[in-house]
Nucleic acid binder design. Structure first.
Lengths: 366, 366
DNA sequence: ACGGTTATAGCAAGCGCTTTCTACAAGCTA
DNA sequence: TAGCTTGTAGAAAGCGCTTGCTATAACCGT
């Protein structure tokens, strides 16, 4: 049968209690005894029974990291960083190691809740939620309740790249400045002279989508006002009134970017720029623009969001908004482990930086 | 305090045993009783104590999926597919749900073993190992031993995209035909007329790297023989003897591709094609080729491996070798859950398909 | 109407660990 | 030397669940 604590104790000629204390390192044990125990552990090739340990201690070493789409490097980078931050610094022995695991919700609210229940069931030590949240009221209610229960059970909760949740259950929130990013990207295009800008948005019910779009619209609004104040239209006409018409929602994948871009350019062939929900979508947008026989950026500028690793290698290199995904992931991991104090108010906003590259340029003269 | 099975039992006016049996659905319970229990569960908002359950049942509902690099879509796609396959088909109630989690080893052998120990400790129901294995003898020994112990403890082990492991501990192996893929890619270039082909390999100690390279070399060897038989050099000279000189090892990232390509073209400016370890590396290779003022594919053809989603949008579209990552992941997940019978001999080889696109073309004459 | 099935449900013994409380030596102080 | 504190280790009571075995009705054929 499998080796148990008692077996180790017998071999080391100590009590099970002593073995437990050596393994957990939370109680003074004489050096000689410790050594004897450790040798017995090695000799017998003992592996702690996690469930038994968790049952007795009423907590486990499981840390869950929830992501919307594990195949998307946006999440992969954050999750990997968090997992690294959680795993490292584990004291060599059985003590410190946490089991940092990532759970892929696929963007489904049901699976998100299921995973949280499963983690709750395992008495997870901490949970990190990444990516934009769904804005469905029922889901928000359910999530708030679930997070509250997790917090009550002693689970640390950290949000990474997702807006704050009311209720005090969350230990720390790292929110991305998606509004600011959207705004800066639009301002960049405006300053280049663009006024008719198509927008390929992500799923409409996600906070990330909404915030980026809000920033975008705000910048356009400001430009319209400025143009009006400056006495009429800008370099390339004026900002269209009906922004809804220049917006198409899709998923965060290439195909959506392709289809939406075709649709946008059909609706308004005079668009001089396309802003995409993220870099993957932007790639699809580029393909669509090219398939229409247009050049980037001479005929149409294209911009993305996230600055994923492949974006700099796109041709032309993609103008995008950089989010410090890795750094945010590391910080989230550290916060989940209590290795770092939460920011004041529990909330920190993480900046989004414009990366102006070759895929955007001034529009051709009318 | 937290609600326990006993609380539910009391409220439903049954014994704890009955509640357990309702929840697990592995024992006949009268419909009326079941309903009463289920209502009590809902009323009290009861969540099973996983550790207690696992301790008593000597098994858990944890399924671990190990990946080398979670930020790489290659792994993300497989892991996501496996997770989906494992999660779905869970009978609605507390019964079937497995907690499918992915663990990021970062390619480190130590972390790989650590994760396996952690999963062993949790009495994981199954483990899926993805990606190429390390060829270090010590690590192989340690892994074989560890997998043996896991198997002894009743954990199902499935390999996905990794060569078979001797010893019988593994339930099923899905091996990618990396050799065949490497060969077909080289044959494609050879048939286009290329003879001096640079190779940007992955980390030398990985099976995937070695197999792809072996396929590549075999095709070149065959071409050399054919050229000789056919009376001399082919369209663009003959296949160089010293293939080592045309091979540079790096990591699976863009930077490695960039650096290695500069190095290759420095060593031999007459190269007419570059084969990269994977698509990400190929992107870096493309950037290097361009920075040297050369055109793709007119001056230098470039090819990748994996057919990641962004590859079709590269400019020019990347010639690559498609691996059915999603399908393989699903199958691995189903095998891990015992939803599918293992292939004969426990091993299935998964084909690799050449995707000839615009980044490869015949070399310019002489 | 009665022994024998069959369908349900309860009893109680663990599963392997953690941790409180207690016990025992030593090493001090006074 | 008596009486403490301090350092170290053991005894034992659970943690909350599963499951083999047992008990009780209800039901059957004859």
């Amino acid at each position: 049968m499998t080796v148990t604590l008692a077996d180790v104790a017998a071999r080391a000629r100590v009590s099970p209690a002593t073995v437990s204390r050596v393994l957990n390192g939370n109680y003074p044990v004489a050096a000689s005894t410790r050594e004897r125990v450790l040798r017995a552990v090695d000799d017998l090739d003992y592996v702690l029974n996690g469930p038994a340990s968790s049952l007795a201690a009423a907590t486990s070493d499981l840390v869950g990291i929830l992501v919307n789409d594990i195949a998307d490097p946006f999440f992969g980078i954050m999750a990997g960083a968090a997992q690294t931050a959680i795993g490292e610094g584990a004291s060599g022995r059985a003590g410190g190691e946490k089991l940092a695991v990532v759970c892929n919700t696929g963007g489904s609210p049901e699976r998100e809740l299921t995973y949280l229940t499963l983690l709750q069931r395992q008495r997870a030590a901490a949970v990190v939620l990444t990516g934009g949240a769904l804005e469905d009221p029922d889901h928000i209610t359910a999530m708030t309740a679930k997070l509250g229960k997790l917090a009550d059970a002693g689970t640390t909760i950290v949000l990474c790249g997702r807006p704050p949740v009311p209720g005090g259950a969350v230990t720390a929130t790292l929110a991305f400045d998606n509004r600011g990013g959207g705004r800066r990207l639009a301002e960049h295009l405006i300053s280049l002279g663009h006024r008719r800008i198509g927008y390929v948005a992500g799923p409409g019910e996600r906070t990330t989508t909404r915030h980026r779009l809000e920033g975008h619209r705000a910048a356009l609004e400001a430009a319209r006002a400025a143009d009006a104040a400056g006495g009429g239209a800008g370099a390339a006409g004026s900002v269209p009134e009906d922004q809804e018409r220049l917006t198409v929602h899709g998923l965060y994948d290439r195909r959506s970017g392709y289809d939406a871009t075709l649709e946008l350019l059909r609706r308004d062939p005079d668009l001089t720029a396309i802003v995409a929900a993220n870099d993957t979508v932007a790639l699809g947008a580029c393909a669509a623009v090219r398939d229409l026989g247009l050049r980037i950026p001479e005929d149409v500028s294209v911009a993305g969001f996230d600055d994923l690793p492949f974006s700099v290698d796109a041709v032309p290199a993609l103008t995008t908004v950089r989010l410090p995904l890795y750094e945010a992931g590391v910080r989230a991991g550290r916060l989940a482990m209590g290795k770092e104090a939460p920011p004041p108010g529990g909330i920190a906003t993480i900046g989004a930086e414009l990366m102006a590259r070759a895929s955007t340029a001034p529009p051709r003269k009318g």
